[in-house]
Simulated assay, not measured.
Amino acid sequence: MAIHGKSLLLACAALAASQAPALTIVSFGGANQAAQVQAYYQPFQRATGIKVLAGEYNGEMAKVKAMVAARSVSWDVLEVEAPELARGCDEGLFEKLDPALAGARAEVVDGALQPCGIGLFVWSNVLAYSADKLKTAPRGWADFWDVKRYPGKRGMRKSAKYTLEIALLADGVAAKDVYRLLATPAGVERAFKKLAQLKPHIQWWEAGAQPPQYLASGDVAMSSAYNGRIASAQQEGRNLKIVWDGSLYDFVYWAIPKGAQQGAAARRFIAFASRPEAQAAYSRQMAYGPINRQAMALLAPARQLELPTAPANLQSAVRVDSNFWADHGESLEQRFNAWALR
């Protein structure tokens, strides 16, 4: 009888899991999403019986705003960049999250815990180039502008964010002064003036998967790019290289849209994805730094050196100022879009 009772309980549990609403997790797609499926979605589904549906978006908040305003939220967990997280949290688009979801605070990288977000990974926007197209390696963003010595198109993200910082770095502004200067009208003018010099040679990108594609095909000789995307292309045999000098680094976060239907399961997923083992599994596939310090010890030394959080890679890096972009992003993006169309 006890055996039958236990079997019945297991059958009921399996039936309940199969009937439980699926958890919809939306990310930026591409190799990044593929790594998340392997490191997070599938292990979470196996461990909990909660089915995960993978969605994709480009980081635009318009749909999130529309869903929250209509009180009809179909997304449960969202991958969000830091400026959008800060702005969306202020606007009430995201649920407040308990930092304990990420584990012990002492084991979490500084900056990974936000009122409405738990860090997913640390990324870098780097200068990447095709070693097939360029025989002499560029040294930094100043060389990115030197189309005579380094001929070819340049790939840049079609956004004020990151692009304006790069322009100032290329113009000789020290890393520590970038945001102080960019907060002034003179600094903004200087950044746009510098961009105008390169504009005829720019091929814009909007999705993270595009820079390695442009580089591999020879469409561009250099590009700003997410370091993890370039690392994935290298693993596929592409002869692409990274210049870490002047890289921009920041966090990407997990967030839960306000009013998400599966809020409890969403929090359970974030806690699962914040464990060292899960974080290390992700960083083995994508060269982004884990937010849990214990995860680094689970990675091979050679892999650690490929991550944005490696000390050598942080020496001349710029930490993206999310508060700056939360305060100034809307006006700067409007100006950038108008400028890009001219």
Rank of each mutant, 00 (worst) to 15 (best):
V126S: 10
D90R: 12
I25S: 01
L101A: 10
M67Q: 10
V126Q: 03
E84Y: 12
I50T: 13
A69V: 02
D132Y: 06
A128Q: 05
V37S: 09
G119L: 03
A112W: 08
I118D: 07
A14V: 09
M61H: 05
V108I: 12
S124L: 02
A31V: 00
A70I: 06
A34G: 09
A137L: 03
E91I: 02
V122C: 04
L23D: 00
Q42W: 10
L97R: 11
Q114S: 03
V26I: 07
P138S: 01
G103Y: 00
A54P: 12
Q19M: 12
E60S: 09
Y57A: 09
F94S: 05
Q33I: 01
A137T: 12
D98M: 13
F94C: 01
W123Y: 15
C89A: 14
T136D: 04
A14F: 14
V77G: 01
Q33L: 07
S27E: 00
A100L: 11
A69W: 08
R87K: 14
D132W: 02
A54L: 04
L120C: 10
T48V: 12
E95F: 00
K6P: 01
F94W: 11
V73K: 02
S124R: 06
C116Y: 07
L97Q: 09
L120I: 08
A70W: 14
A66K: 15
A102I: 00
T24H: 05
V126P: 01
P115C: 10
S124G: 12
R46M: 09
E81L: 05
A16T: 10
L93V: 11
T136W: 14
Q45T: 14
A13C: 08
G111K: 11
S124K: 08
R46W: 06
G49H: 05
A11R: 14
V77D: 02
G92V: 13
G92T: 13
A69Y: 07
A66G: 02
S72W: 14
K133P: 05
S124F: 12
N58I: 02
G55R: 04
A22I: 14
G111W: 00
L9Q: 08
A66P: 15
A86L: 14
V109N: 07
P21K: 03
P21H: 04
A31Y: 13
V122S: 08
C12M: 15
